[in-house]
């Protein structure tokens, strides 16, 4: 059974704004034949202000597809079309307190339906540029098509490269066999053989690569943005050291020794990985744990 949030379940069991709308003036029909989900989004748009006065949906799909559709209609009602177009699939997932990685495509479908409906209203043709493949990396919800295209576009040749460029495989590493299979296939296309012992493409070649100082500053900036949340719970965090991929931090105040410390660190690590675009490991620094041990004496 999927680990659905209460919000997802609630929107599935009592969907908002479901059913056909007779006087819709913007309709978007999208779907994914493979995963069997399809969605019709119907909007009533005020022609004067381009505000969405009403939104309804009909969905052929699983629990999270129906919940995502319901959430989408709730989010966009009252928005102008331009504002509605800024709603991302992550916004839909966040509204539902998250979706399992295998189910993120359900929120993507909601966003596509919105784009299609707006295009329909404005009388332009909407073309879907998003292709979906089998889910490879479950930690970061990355599918085969994205990995394949990234490998091709950047001439990647190792699993490490794929982790640097897409994050796929940077978590639990169980999907490395799947990534290797993609590499074997794409490398064969350009007449090369996959060598599992190949050295990763030098990171210096990557555009926008940060130097050490920039990277540390960037890490501090990210921690600063997380800090208010920790302070709300009477805790705090400080950066102690950065050693390659390992980021040492001190958990301070209520955060130190908190039962939720592991989860908090995990969350911070995920944020850092996403913002830095590379895999890093966040560990509490030694001095921090010594201090904690001392305080327990």
């Amino acid at each position: 059974m999927w680990d659905y949030s209460d919000k997802v379940k609630e929107h599935f069991f009592s969907p908002r704004n479901s059913g056909a709308m007779d006087d819709a003036n913007a309709v978007g029909d999208v779907g994914s034949i493979n995963c069997g989900d399809a969605l019709r989004l119907m909007l009533k748009v005020d022609p004067e202000t381009e505000t969405i006065q009403d939104a309804r949906f009909q969905t052929f799909g699983c629990g999270s597809a129906i919940a995502s559709s319901s959430a989408l209609t709730e989010i966009i009602k009252g928005m102008t079309l331009d504002d509605a177009l800024k709603v991302s699939n992550q916004d839909i997932a966040d509204y539902l307190d998250g979706l399992p990685p295998e189910k993120m495509h359900c929120s993507v479908m909601g966003r596509e339906a919105l784009q299609a409906a707006v295009a329909n209203y404005r009388g332009v043709e909407w073309k879907d540029d998003h292709e979906e493949g089998a889910l490879i990396c479950k930690c970061f919800a990355i599918d085969a098509v994205l990995i394949e295209e990234t490998v091709r576009a950047n001439n990647l040749s190792s699993v490490e490269d794929v982790i640097h460029y897409t994050k796929a495989g940077g978590g639990c590493s169980s999907c490395h066999e799947g990534i290797e299979e993609i590499l074997v296939k794409v490398l064969a296309e350009r007449g090369e053989t996959f060598n599992p012992h190949a050295v990763a493409v030098s990171k210096e070649d990557k555009p926008g690569k940060l130097n050490n100082l920039q990277r540390i500053k960037r890490i501090e900036m990210i921690l600063d943005s997380i800090r208010p949340q920790l302070q709300r719970d009477h805790g705090d965090i400080e950066l102690v050291d950065v050693d390659g991929k390992t980021i040492y931090v001190n958990m301070i105040g209520a955060c130190a020794g908190c039962q939720m410390e592991a989860q908090t660190l995990q969350g911070i690590q995920t944020r850092l990985i996403e913002d830095l675009g590379e895999f890093v490991k966040v560990v509490p620094s030694r001095t921090g744990s010594y201090a904690r041990a001392a305080s327990h004496v």
Partner: peptide, 8 residues
Amino acid sequence: KAFAPVYA
């Protein structure tokens, strides 16, 4: 035909 969505 009644519902022929654009498929990804």
